[in-house]
Design a protein around this nucleic acid. Structure first.
Length: 538
RNA sequence: GCCGGGGUGGCCUAGUUGGUUAGGGCGCCAGACUCAUAAUCUGGAGGUCGCGGGUCCGAACCCCGCCCCCGGCACCA
């Protein structure tokens, strides 16, 4: 999507549900979002980057009970954990909040009231499973019993082990509480519903012009085609945002979670007239980065809610594919999981950032394996990029000490320009693999150029050859400078190291894309080079 | 069953309006170079583009039929 340059951009990254630790599946969304924002800034856009922890819902309540602590304590623990991981990984949010904040409570209540006032919410009696032993209502996922269709063991909402049919509340035979195992029964309960069905026409036109990745659009359109059902937006829980006027009900977590995008913007910007530009006045471009598992909520439910309450709508939804481990679906019990913290104990964060985008195109499934990780590290980061920097800076440092004199050749400038265009196109298409592949292609070109010109021969000859040698070195340093700016969004701290080796005084993080064709200054002192990446054996 | 995404040399993969000998990477083989982390560079072998029909001067790309893999199918977060 071509993004209008004259408006600010708000980029959000899906809110992690904080009842467990961060694994690389999460990172597949946050890292590309961070890369996207960094690249937008290099391209001259005014971007803000927001996310936060999703804190409500039944699983956190249960998790707290299991650990003998309060939901607040569970949230606090993992909220800090995620913040720490993001910091370590250089995922640099302008604001990272959490949905139990006062402002999110307030904003959620306000939006729900708007929806009520606008006639999009109604009351309806439903059958709700209740466990007498636990003394609470149970979401259908936490009920088990016998499937009325095939007799197999089933969950309250779906016959997950038998015929696979969807079950309506109360349909299941001999319901039991999955938490304590005792008998559960269904009680008539009054809940509130959101008239999602009345947004079908709106959504059809909205989805047509929604930007982002095709997987998100297609998936959402299919739902609308199938006919939308109204959404039950309340739950019998203590933990959460109270439904206006009802002390016994909280809103469903998928109501207050995305509203976090708005309240975090408020918390960041503070001034009402400023944040409203983003969320009620259509004066900004809103881009959501999510995983394919929550397309429904972001492309159907969320825009309908915003529309119903009179807020601005997202302009693009970018959905990343799921992550597998050695071809298998994530599973904590089977050990098919790679924890972010464990990974970071062993390897530099930039290597993970690189791998996550280089391994597979954004919307496709990413199959993680230690084998493919080490292959990429050794063949790409060490052999192509690390080696280019090391061989050239070493050679230049030893023989010149500074950036030598000389002109940048047309061939080199042309190549840099060509790669820059590829990178910009990749960003607009959310193709982060293409972005790194293109930038690495420039490093490749640098190696070829250096090899072809054989400056190590020239340096041993006369003064004239030494001049030519300097010119070649300067050209390759220029290539490295360009690679550095182009890859800073992917590997911010490693590229800062390279930037320093080149003797640049400015900050590579704020360097703009335009700078890549600006000749590197002759005479600027080079630093003694250090290896960028170490080979990995796993 | 319905929908979406795929099926391209040993492995991964590009190829969104059909057009010269189907690109790239890994791996493999041969050579070059020695500035560099045995890194780099050059060249090479290897493909019925899932199967069968069709349209066309021409199809991996369009149409029809079929097979296989993955994911989704709602109140779970």
């Amino acid at each position: 999507m071509k993004i209008p340059i004259d408006k600010p951009i708000l980029v959000t990254s899906a809110l992690p549900y904080v009842n467990g630790e961060c694994h690389i599946g999460h990172l597949r969304t946050y890292v590309p979002a961070d890369i996207y924002v960094r690249m937008l800034r290099k391209m001259g856009y005014d971007a803000i980057f927001i996310s936060g922890s999703d804190t409500h819902g039944t699983p956190i309540v249960l998790s707290a009970e299991a650990q003998g602590i309060t939901p607040e304590e569970v949230v606090e623990k993992y909220h800090e954990h995620f913040k720490r991981i993001f910091k370590d990984l250089n995922v640099d949010f302008d604001y990272y909040g959490q949905t139990d904040s006062e402002s999110n409570h307030r904003r959620t209540e306000e939006i729900v009231k708007e929806l009520i006032e606008n006639g999009y919410v109604y009351k309806k009696g439903t059958k709700q499973a209740f466990c007498n032993t636990c003394g609470r209502f149970l979401p259908d996922r936490y009920v088990e019993g016998e499937c009325p269709h095939c007799g197999a063991m089933a969950r309250g909402d779906e016959c997950d082990q038998g015929c696979g049919k969807h079950l309506e509340p109360g349909e299941i035979i001999e319901p039991r509480c999955k938490i304590c195992g005792s008998e559960a029964d269904f009680k008539e309960q009054e809940q509130f519903f959101f008239k999602l069905s009345s947004f079908a026409d709106f959504l059809i036109t909205y989805l047509d012009k929604l930007g982002g990745t095709r997987n998100a659009k297609n998936y959402a359109k299919e739902w609308v085609r199938k006919e939308l059902m109204d959404w039950c937006i309340t739950r019998n829980l203590e933990w959460g945002v109270k439904f206006p006027g009802r002390d016994d009900l909280v809103v469903y977590v998928w109501v207050d979670a995305p509203i976090g995008y708005i309240s975090f913007t408020e918390e960041l910007i503070e001034k009402e007239e400023e944040w409203r530009k983003y969320w009620t006045e259509d004066k900004a471009t809103i881009v959501h980065f999510i995983g394919t598992d929550i397309i429904y909520h972001h492309c159907i439910f969320w825009p309908a809610m915003l529309k119903g309450a009179g807020y601005s709508l997202p302009d693009a939804v970018v959905a990343s594919g799921m992550v597998k481990i050695d071809g298998k679906t994530f599973s904590k019990s089977r050990g098919d999981v790679v924890w972010a913290a464990e990974f970071l104990e062993r390897f530099h964060p930039d290597t993970l950032r690189y791998y996550l985008v280089a391994q597979s195109s954004h919307t496709k499934e990413l199959d993680f394996s230690w084998d493919s990780f080490s292959t990429r590290m050794n063949n790409e980061l060490v052999a192509i990029l690390g080696n280019l920097v090391h061989r050239v800076v070493s050679f230049a440092y030893k023989n010149f000490g500074v950036v030598p004199e000389g002109d940048i050749e047309d061939e080199v400038l042309g190549k840099i320009e060509e790669i820059r265009e590829e990178v910009v196109k990749a960003v607009e298409e959310y193709e982060f693999k293409k972005l790194v592949d293109s930038a690495m292609g420039l490093a490749d070109f640098g190696n070829g150029f250096f090899q072809r010109e054989e400056p190590w021969h020239l340096i041993k000859k006369g003064e004239k050859e030494r001049e030519r040698c300097g010119e070649i070195v300067k050209n390759v340093l220029q290539i490295i400078k360009a690679v550095c700016v182009l890859l800073e969004p992917v590997m911010p701290s490693k590229m800062a190291e390279v930037w320093q080796q080149l003797g640049m005084e400015s900050d590579v993080h704020s360097a703009k894309l335009d700078e890549i064709t600006v000749p590197i200054a002759s005479g600027q002192a080079l630093k003694k080079p250090k290896k960028l990446f170490e080979r990995v054996e796993v």
